[in-house]
Design a protein around this nucleic acid. Structure first.
Lengths: 99, 99
DNA sequence: GCGACTCATCGACCACGGCTGATGTCACCT
DNA sequence: AGGTGACATCAGCCGTGGTCGATGAGTCGC
């Protein structure tokens, strides 16, 4: 239940990908923008975008020579809800199983 | 802003650690419980618990020979809030920066 | 005190994943 | 058509991080 919804967190473990989704949350960008914003080489950015794309987190719209990327609506909803569920669980005192 | 609150996600990237926090969300457990629940060797469990402990996600209460672990209240709040912020951002259509 | 048990730590091995460089494809422009 | 720029993919290197085995510290029962 929790595990499957949170396997996206494996993707967001990498700081570079977190920065990518953070930037895409504010505005749609194409690869060249991300390359200069992140200060990383183009193949690296493309590699991360591929991972995010295959996970359904982002989607790319080819526009001439450029490819604009944006976050896919609702892609993070289940993961966010699962994490909120865990966070609220920390506020209650769970029972202690005897050894 | 987003990046720092979500660096906990690096910890939760590992499925073993996700299972640990999932189990601890339901009840407080000592290491021997986690060892048999997860089917992993004891040093492995102890290693993950150390990582979670140093990140402030869990805390251990020594009780005789045993050490009971539980989630630290509010430890995941910032990460959950940041992820919810990103998830809601996916529902709005962001502007497209021209190339 | 002595043995049995729980748990933490250390060192070494190894696989996974990110980075790099080179190459290929496609669209646009002259 | 030829050149340029944007983007994707591939093969390879290499560092990080998880796993394993052995060991050490602390506790309970005899």
């Amino acid at each position: 239940m929790v595990d499957e919804s949170l396997d996206l967190l494996t993707l967001l473990a990498d700081p570079a990908r977190r920065r990518i989704v953070g930037l895409l949350a504010a505005e749609q960008l194409c690869t060249c923008h991300l390359v200069e914003e992140l200060g990383m080489k183009q193949p690296v950015v493309s590699h991360h975008l591929r991972a995010l794309r295959e996970a359904g987190v982002v989607e790319g719209s080819p526009c001439g020579r450029f490819t604009y990327y944006r976050l896919r609506p609702g892609a993070l909803d289940r993961a966010a809800a699962a994490l909120v569920g865990l966070a609220t669980a920390t506020h209650s005192e769970p029972p202690r199983r005897p050894c």
